[in-house]
Every structure is written in structure tokens, then in C-alpha cells.
Design a protein around this nucleic acid. Structure first.
Ligand SMILES: [Zn+2]
Ligand SMILES: [Zn+2]
Length: 799
DNA sequence: AGCACGCCGACT
DNA sequence: GTCGGCGTGCTC
């Protein structure tokens, strides 16, 4: 038998199948999806089996496959097939996709060890210590020494493929004898055998509870490993090593399994349509457009129940940022132990454990962020993507996949419906619903009949600022005071899109920039340094302008910390919680802040975008947006859409409970349509208006887009290659396709590489995929000049 | 991607 | 003569 293997070598030339002979002793362990170790040239690498045949086209002699790593193939045949389709569409190597589908611990760790070649060499002092990893040796003298040893046949190289995945094991003790035997043994024991008697007593009294774990026995009976070992040698107990899962959710399940909330008419209507598709096994995509508070989550949970009732499983994706303890608790309360949660806050070991529970079919519902779309869940009856407009569903680094597209693929594979939910659907999804590609379901009432909050705009051009800074208007501060006097709570959002704490000299206008990239350095107060967010460059905070030596330097861009200080000055005694990347970096701190605010241990929650997501605090009656405009300054074609989404979402945080809600939005552009329509919370009108803008600008969803980025050490090389690609595309593409560029990218230099980009907008180009693959291949030749090319299908950002 | 192989100039 | 630089081609 022959295995077709994709090897763990990410390169154009190795991005294909390599075949290996399967030794007969491995035949029973191997299957499609197996993770294996194979010889590859002089070394050994990890790989994945994507096919098994008995015929080979290969002319040479096939090598033997060396190891099958896992007992159960980590990839299902479905995922193997998906990886092939995806590789074609997103211009990524197949191995990269296969790896993205699996927990990080399944990536191999390679070591290249220098080992003695004979008994005499083995006695050398060099080989007495830790093994020598040649990949880690940098000392030139050592390298020379080793080379000599290799030449003299005193040493040889051993390639090692290490598995990072460690299963947590625990010893379990089971009864080795019949129940009746133990009292007899008890009577023969010596008087001073205290521990032994204790153990036998427990066995006699609680025989049904066995097997018991080592930690259990140690804790309950105060036994030591020694006394347990003697029980084994005496033949009372048998020891076995059992795999245990780390349980990251133990804190979330409050035990009581809540029953479903009754749905209102609209919710029920939506549910009925989804249910029908589940039952009739239709791979239909629904767009559930529901205003904030309309109870979309309830519809999802009901639909998941329906799928489970049909004996099928369910997959639910939520944005990383909304995968909050609140959210997890809600799902766990409904479906209990059958839920697996894949979350970036879990440790790598915990992720691996959760993932294995899914792979073994021990869970029926999977909840997770983007990468959970690859969960090895079988027999899927429903897929849900909540907040489908979120750009985080598109991965912005190498396998640039969009979880929505993957979900559509899987929905077709399983013949199950896909539900995309949002209060502010992405324009593309909404347009597809208009053309009946998706099935539109609308929820227009708040489920609890509460009124939408009143939204007012504060025009920062004609306003008095409170305090000495230009961040908080008198109007906003007064409104906060009023709420605090009534013992109500306030959420304040600082929009930080495209904004940062950079250093500006007031004398000469100098802005401190990164030496490697074309961006300004950001002030980090926690580490008291200036940092580059693109390459990680760090330098001390200057006290004088590096250009003119003036001491008149300022740090611009309102940070949450600065606003917090202002608030403390303007509202003495107010208790303020701050939530941003700095205060949520530590594990669990996010939950801590929210719990504290929920318990009314603070009056004001001040934060960045991350507070805009579905947090629900009944006592919050005022939401303030400190700066609505920053997003609009970005000249990306979807800047208005993103701003509208953010404002609508944050406004939804107010007045969810029985108290009337108020939203105040500070802006320099009160006449901008995105802000005007966010004020009236009118998604449908925004959709209509924005579609006109996109039509006029020839942008998505009227056109498909592909972004080609070209990077090189020398700027002219990047530019030259970019123009060459443009000419090539020009020759092969036709009306109404539009090719924009090449232009230097918005951040024209990152890590000392210059970036140029070309944007292709098209309606129908059947050959485009092939052309772009050709562009990618031809770049391989250009690699000599230090060129690299990245192709992003349907980019989220083009600037 | 790594790694070997081979060719060429530079240094014991 | 041999060491080490890099260009070229291959990995089942
Ligand atoms: Zn200056
Ligand atoms: Zn940088």
C-alpha cells in the first residue's frame, strides 16, 4: 500500500503529493488524515496522509513511511478534502492550511542532533552532556569542530521529529479481587498497618466508587504513592494510566441547566425556517438580520437544540472578542457537558484537550472563534456565525482564509443550513440576501419590548470642552454626572482605529518613526518605551526632540489612560474601570473587569472597541462615544461601514434593561451619513445609501477583489516587479475588470521591506485564479532578487 | 525550506 | 592542494 503525503515543508516546489510505501506493520494504523513521519531527502519531516492507493506513477523506488504519530487520524477525510479546495482559492500552501486546521501542539519540533558514530566516540566528553542540536549552535569554533568529527566518521547526524502534543495522564486504581475478599485480608493485617487498613476500609465501604484516581485516594484517605504501590504488589489493586482532559470550563458551568426562553413571533418565524432546513437537510445560508436586543442568540440556541434533536451536531462561531465568560456560560447552561469551547485564552494544552474531545465525538456542540470553523466535528446539522460582519473572521496572515467561506463549504458538505447573524450585516452578505443567494430573516423588535436608546450627537466643532484637554465635552461630562448621581452606570468608548500615542515635536513638527518601517512609534506606558507595532522595534521614550533638541514634545492620540486621568480630575470620587489591551493582557483579567463592573464596584467602564460587543449590564443607562470619527479618516472603501457597525453596536449597550437608555456620540463630522444613520440605528437605510456609494466607486459587493502585494528589500525592485505583474494581468484580463496600481502600500515599508500593491476588481474572470497562480509561480524565479509576493483573495483592508 | 553537490577564487 | 563562498537542483 502507498500513502500520499503532504510534507511539512512550506515551499512552492514541495507543495504537492509525495508517495511512500506503507510497511505492513503500519497498515492497520494508517488512514486518510493520519499524521506521519517520513524520510525526505537526508532528513525526516512530519506530514499528513491525504490519500492511500496501491498504484504509483513514481518511477523511482518509494521510501518507507516511518511513523504513524497518533492513534486516531487528527484530520477527517472531510478536512483533507477541504484543505485541497481551500489551497486553490486562497493561494496558500496546502501544508499551511492543514496545520491551521489543527491545534498548535501538533506542529512538529525538529531537531538535528550530533550523535557519536561508534563506541569509542561515545566516550568523548562532548557526548556526555545534553544532546547537541546543530540548529542551535552558532559558535564558529564549535561548528568547525563538529564538521571535523563528521568527516572523520566519529559523529553522525540524527534527524529527530518531536511531537509537542503531550497528553495529561493520571493513575487509576481498580479492584483486583472480588469484593468479598477484602474483609478477609483486613483481618489478617497487623495492628500498626494504619494506612493499609484505611485503604481496605474504604474499599470495603465504597467498592462501587472504584476505580479511583491517585489524587482522589491521596486526598480522601491521606495515602501516599508508597502505600498504594504496596497495595499493588500485594495484588489488591491494579494500576492503569488513564488519559485525563484538562477542564478549562470548570468555572463556567453553574450546574443548573436552564430551559429555553419562549420566543416571540418573529423569533419563532425565523426558527421555523431554519428548523425546516435542518430537518430537510438543505445546505441553505440564512442571513439573520436582527437589531440589537432582538434576541438572535436565543434563536441560535433553539436552532442548535433542533439539530441535536435530529441527532446531529452543531458548530457556532463567535468573534474572539465576544467569546466572553458570559457567552460561554449561556451556552453551557443550555447544553452542559456536550459543549466544547475553542478559545485563544486557553493554554495550548487545554486547546489540544478540547480539540480531542471533539475529534473523538464526545461533544455535540462546538463554540469558538475563527479557527473553530475547522473543528473536527462530525455529522454537522447546523452552523451558526454570530456577528458575521466582523472582519476577524478573515485571517490576515498566511492561510488567509475566511471562516464564512469555509462554513459555506462545510454546510454544503454536510447538507446543513448555515445561519449568519448580525445587527449590521456586512454589505456583501446583505446584498447576497437581496439577490436571494442567502435567505433573509429579519428581527425588527426588541425581544424584551424595551425601547431603543435615544442617540444624540455632540458636534465637537462647536462645543465647550471640559477641563484643559480636547477630549471630553461639557455636555458629555454633565450627562455622566447626572447618571452617577442616580447611582446608574456609564460605559465610555474610545475609538482607537488608526489611532495611536505617537510623539510630536511642537517646535519642528518632527514625528518619531520606526527605523525599519514607515509608521510612527507608539508610546507604551506600561513598559515606558516607544514601540513599533509592525516589527517590534523598541526604544526609550525621548525627553527631547531627536531632531531639534526642543523639550516641547507632546504625545498625541487620546489613550484610555489619559482619558481616565481627565475623568478622575473632572469627576472626583467616580470609580473608573479601564479596559484596553494593556489592562486585559493577563489571563482572566478581562473576566475580572467585567465581573467587577457587573457587581457595580465601579461607576464608569472606559474602554476601546472591545467594550462594544454584546456585553449586557442592566444598570448601564448612558453610553458615550468619545471620538466617532477616527475610523472615517481611514480611506479604506469600507471605512463608513466599519464606523456604522461600531457605533450601532456600542449604542446597543445602553438601555437594555428597564431603565431608559441614552447614547451620546462626540464627533467632528455630525453630517456624515454613517454617523447620521447610526444615530437613528437604521441599518436598512445605511445599506441602501452605502450600496450607492459602492456602486459609484466600483467597489464590493459590486466587484470581487484580489490584492497582490509585492515586497522587496530595494524599493525599485518591488516597483519593477509590480509593474511587470500589472502588464501581465493587463494582457489577460478584460472589461469590466479594473486594475488599480501598482502603488506603494499605505505602510510602504515594514521590517525594512518595501511594499507595492495591485488591486484587481472584477465581476467575472474565469481564468483569474489560474493567472494569479502563475504570477505566484513566476515570483519563485524572481526570488533571487529578494522578492516575495502575497495574494489576498477578498481582502478586508486594501490600504 | 533545507540540504548536497559542484564550481571557483583565496589562503595555508 | 584544501577551505569555504554561493548558485543550482532535488526531495517520493
Ligand atoms: Zn523638534
Ligand atoms: Zn518597525
Amino acid at each position: 500500500m502507498i500513502a500520499q503525503v503532504i510534507v511539512d515543508v512550506a515551499a512552492r516546489q514541495t507543495d504537492r503529493i509525495f508517495e511512500y510505501h506503507i510497511p505492513t506493520e503500519l497498515e492497520k494504523d494508517i488512514a486518510i488524515g493520519s499524521r506521519v513521519v517520513v524520510p525526505f531527502g537526508p532528513r525526516k519531516v512530519q506530514g499528513f496522509v491525504v490519500g492511500i492507493t496501491d498504484q504509483s506513477e513514481f518511477k523511482g523506488k518509494l521510501k518507507d513511511l516511518l511513523v504513524v504519530v497518533d492513534e486516531m487520524p487528527p484530520l477527517t477525510p472531510e478536512l483533507v478534502k477541504l484543505s485541497a479546495d481551500l489551497a486553490k482559492n486562497i493561494f496558500s500552501y496546502r501544508i499551511k492550511i492543514l496545520q491551521a486546521m489543527l491545534p498548535w501542539v501538533m506542529r512538529a519540533n525538529y531537531r538535528k542532533l550530533l550523535v557519536p558514530a561508534n563506541d569509542r566516540a561515545a566516550k568523548m566528553p562532548l557526548f556526555q552532556g545534553d544532546p547537541i542540536d546543530l540548529n542551535k549552535i552558532t559558535d564558529l569554533a564549535e561548528i568547525k569542530q563538529f564538521r571535523k568529527l563528521l568527516q572523520d566518521d566519529q559523529a553522525k547526524i540524527e534527524y529527530v521529529v518531536e511531537n509537542r502534543a503531550k497528553k495529561k495522564k493520571e493513575n487509576q486504581y481498580e479492584l483486583a479481587l472480588k469484593k468479598e475478599e477484602y474483609p478477609k485480608i483486613y483481618n489478617t493485617l497487623r495492628q500498626n498497618a494504619v494506612k493499609q487498613k484505611k485503604l481496605l476500609m474504604d474499599i470495603i465501604d465504597n467498592a462501587a466508587d472504584y476505580p479511583k484516581s491517585q489524587s482522589q485516594l491521596e486526598k480522601q484517605l491521606g495515602l501516599t504513592a508508597a502505600s498504594l504501590n504496596s497495595a499493588i504488589t500485594k495484588g489488591w489493586l491494579n494500576k492503569k494510566s488513564v488519559e485525563v482532559y484538562r477542564d478549562p470550563l470548570s468555572g463556567f458551568d453553574d450546574g443548573e441547566h436552564k430551559t429555553a426562553v419562549t420566543l416571540n413571533g418573529e423569533q419563532q418565524g425565523a426558527l421555523n425556517q431554519i428548523t425546516q432546513a435542518i430537518e430537510q437537510r438543505q445546505a441553505e445560508t440564512f442571513l439573520l438580520e436582527g437589531i440589537t436586543g432582538s434576541g438572535k442568540t436565543e434563536v441560535y440556541l433553539h436552532a442548535i437544540s433542533k439539530a441535536l434533536k435530529q441527532g446531529r451536531n452543531a458548530l457556532m462561531l463567535v468573534p474572539e472578542i465576544s467569546l466572553t465568560p458570559q457567552m460561554v456560560r449561556q451556552v453551557k447552561a443550555r447544553f452542559g457537558q456536550e459543549v466544547a469551547v475553542l478559545h485563544s485564552a486557553l493554554s495550548e494544552g487545554e486547546k489540544y484537550d478540547e480539540w480531542r474531545r471533539i475529534r473523538r465525538g464526545e461533544t455535540k456542540v462546538v463554540v469558538g472563534a475563527r479557527s473553530a470553523v475547522f473543528a473536527p466535528l462530525d455529522n454537522i446539522g447546523l452552523i451558526v456565525i454570530d456577528e458575521e460582519h466582523e472582519s476577524s473572521y478573515k485571517q490576515e496572515t498566511d492561510p488567509r482564509y475566511n471562516a464564512r467561506d469555509v462554513a459555506i463549504w462545510r454546510s454544503k458538505f454536510h447538507n446543513c443550513p448555515l445561519v449568519l447573524g448580525s445587527a449590521t450585516p456586512s454589505l456583501g452578505s446583505r446584498a447576497r440576501a437581496q439577490k436571494n443567494v442567502y435567505h433573509l430573516l429579519r428581527l425588527t423588535e426588541r425581544a424584551n419590548q424595551k425601547k431603543l436608546p435615544k442617540v444624540n450627537l455632540i458636534d465637537l466643532k462647536h462645543v465647550q470642552f471640559a477641563g484643559g484637554q480636547f477630549d471630553l465635552s461639557v455636555e458629555l461630562v454633565d450627562a455622566i454626572k447626572k447618571r452617577l448621581a442616580k447611582k446608574e452606570q456609564v460605559i465610555l468608548m474610545l475609538n482607537r482605529r488608526g489611532f495611536a500615542n505617537f510623539m510630536l515635536c511642537r517646535e519642528c513638527g518632527f514625528v518619531l518613526k520606526c527605523p525599519n518601517c514607515d509608521v510612527s512609534l507608539n508610546l507604551h506606558k506600561d513598559t515606558n518605551s516607544m514601540q513599533c507595532h509592525y516589527c517590534g522595534h523598541t526604544e526609550p521614550v525621548p525627553t527631547r526632540c531627536p531632531n531639534c533638541q526642543s523639550s516641547q514634545i507632546r504625545f498625541l492620540g487620546a489613550g484610555t489612560q489619559k482619558v481616565q486621568e481627565e475623568l478622575e480630575e473632572l469627576l472626583p470620587g467616580a470609580r473608573i474601570l479601564r479596559m484596553d489591551v494593556d489592562t486585559t493582557r493577563r489571563k482572566g483579567s478581562y473576566k475580572k473587569i467585567l465581573d467587577s463592573f457587573g457587581a457595580h464596584e465601579a461607576d464608569i467602564l472606559l474602554g476601546t472597541q472591545m467594550i462594544a460587543k454584546g456585553l449586557d449590564f442592566p444598570n448601564v443607562t448612558l453610553v458615550g462615544v468619545i471620538n466617532a470619527d477616527t475610523g472615517l479618516w481611514l480611506s479604506d472603501y469600507n471605512a463608513s461601514e466599519k464606523t456604522f457597525e461600531l457605533l450601532t453596536q456600542v449604542a446597543g449597550r445602553a438601555g437594555r434593561a428597564d431603565k431608559e437608555g441614552e447614547v451620546l456620540i462626540q464627533t467632528y463630522n455630525p453630517e456624515h451619513y454613517a454617523i447620521q444613520l447610526a444615530q437613528t440605528q437604521d441599518y436598512e437605510r445605511f445599506y441602501g445609501y452605502e450600496m450607492n456609494m459602492r456602486h459609484a466607486g466600483n467597489y464590493p459587493p459590486y466587484f470581487y477583489t484580489v490584492l497582490i502585494s509585492i515586497a522587496a528589500k530595494k524599493e525599485q525592485n518591488a516597483a519593477r516587479e509590480a509593474f511587470r505583474i500589472k502588464r501581465y494581468l493587463n494582457e489577460h484580463l478584460h472589461e469590466p475588470t479594473i486594475i488599480l496600481g501598482p502603488t506603494p502600500s499605505a505602510i510602504s515599508r515594514v521590517k525594512n521591506q518595501y511594499y507595492y500593491q495591485i488591486l484587481v476588481k472584477y465581476k467575472k474572470e474565469p481564468n483569474l485564479n489560474e493567472l494569479l497562480h502563475h504570477v505566484q509561480d513566476s515570483a519563485q524565479e524572481a526570488k533571487k532578487y529578494g522578492l516575495s509576493i502575497f495574494i489576498d483573495n477578498e481582502p478586508e483592508r486594501i490600504m
